[in-house]
Computed example of a mutant assay.
Amino acid sequence: MTTTSTVQDGILFVRLSGDLIGSPDTDQLLNSVNEHLGEALNHCAVDLSEIRYINSTGIGVLVSLLTKFRSRGGEMVLINPADHPKKMLALTKLTNIFAVASDEATARQQLIPAAN
């Protein structure tokens, strides 16, 4: 899995591709996000459009990230989950917990009002 992250408008955007299934990939994702948490960022958007496969470990990491941001008074949005992640989120009923946006612009709109 590859992870890239950028900060725009006070929002951490994380783009993932490949399979989100466990170490060392999940460690890389958590480390990347933790580095940015020192920048007083409270909002995050995670792009899952290029994730082919996600297992329970990957789901657990997403829940962990959501908890990190919400405990700081922030929010996290998932961007355009690919088919398998979308099915896993529905199967685990996490679609009721995670905010989902169709694209980066929509995610930004959902998070910027939360930042004010």
Results as ranks from 00 to 15, higher is better:
Glu39Pro: 00
Glu39Cys: 06
Glu39Met: 12
Glu39Gln: 15
Ala40Cys: 07
Ala40Ser: 15
Leu41Tyr: 13
Leu41His: 11
Leu41Cys: 09
Asn42Pro: 06
Asn42Val: 11
Asn42Ile: 01
Asn42Cys: 08
Asn42Leu: 14
His43Trp: 15
His43Leu: 15
His43Asp: 14
His43Val: 01
Cys44Gln: 08
Ala45His: 11
Val46Lys: 06
Val46Phe: 04
Asp47Gly: 10
Leu48Cys: 10
Leu48Gly: 10
Leu48Thr: 09
Leu48Ala: 07
Leu48Gln: 06
Leu48Ser: 07
Ser49Met: 12
Ser49Thr: 12
Ser49Asp: 11
Ser49Cys: 11
Ser49Ala: 13
Glu50Gly: 08
Glu50Pro: 08
Glu50His: 15
Ile51Lys: 02
Arg52Trp: 02
Arg52Cys: 01
Tyr53Cys: 01
Tyr53Ser: 04
Tyr53Ile: 02
Ile54Leu: 09
Ile54Ala: 11
Ile54Cys: 08
Asn55Cys: 07
Asn55Lys: 11
Asn55His: 13
Asn55Pro: 07
Ser56Arg: 13
Ser56Tyr: 14
Thr57Gly: 04
Thr57Met: 13
Thr57Val: 14
Thr57Phe: 08
Ile59Phe: 06
Gly60Cys: 11
Val61Trp: 04
Leu62Thr: 06
Leu62Glu: 06
Leu62Ile: 01
Val63Glu: 02
Val63Ser: 05
Ser64Met: 14
Ser64Gln: 14
Ser64Phe: 06
Ser64Trp: 00
Leu65Asp: 04
Leu65Val: 06
Leu65Asn: 00
Leu65Trp: 03
Leu65Met: 12
Leu66Glu: 05
Thr67Ser: 13
Thr67Met: 12
Thr67His: 13
Lys68Pro: 02
Lys68Ala: 09
Lys68Met: 15
Phe69Arg: 04
Phe69Tyr: 14
Phe69Thr: 04
Phe69Trp: 08
Phe69Glu: 01
Arg70Ala: 05
Arg70Glu: 08
Arg70Met: 10
Arg70Tyr: 03
Arg70Val: 08
Ser71Gly: 07
Ser71Asp: 15
Arg72Cys: 04
Arg72Phe: 11
Gly73Cys: 10
Gly73Phe: 12
Gly74Ser: 05
Gly74Glu: 03
Gly74Pro: 00
Gly74Arg: 01
Glu75Pro: 00
Glu75Asp: 15
Glu75Arg: 00
Met76Phe: 06
Met76Cys: 09
Val77Pro: 04
Val77Lys: 01
Val77Asp: 03
Val77Cys: 05
Val77Trp: 00
Leu78Cys: 10
Ile79Ser: 00
Ile79Gln: 02
Asn80Leu: 10
Asn80Gly: 04
Pro81Lys: 03
Pro81Trp: 01
Pro81Met: 07
Ala82Lys: 06
Ala82Cys: 07
His84Leu: 03
His84Asn: 12
Pro85Glu: 12
Pro85Arg: 00
Pro85Met: 07
Lys86Thr: 08
Lys86Ile: 05
Met88Asp: 05
Met88Pro: 03
Met88Ile: 14
Met88Arg: 07
Met88Glu: 10
Ala90His: 12
Ala90Leu: 12
Leu91Glu: 12
Lys93Asn: 15
Lys93Ile: 06
Lys93Gly: 08
Lys93Cys: 10
Lys93Asp: 15
Leu94His: 08
Asn96Ile: 04
Phe98Arg: 04
Ala99Asp: 10
Val100Pro: 02
Val100Cys: 09
Val100Lys: 00
Val100Gln: 04
Val100Phe: 00
Ala101Pro: 03
Ala101Cys: 07
Ser102His: 11
Asp103Leu: 03
Asp103Tyr: 03
Glu104Met: 05
Glu104Ser: 08
Glu104Asn: 00
Ala105His: 09
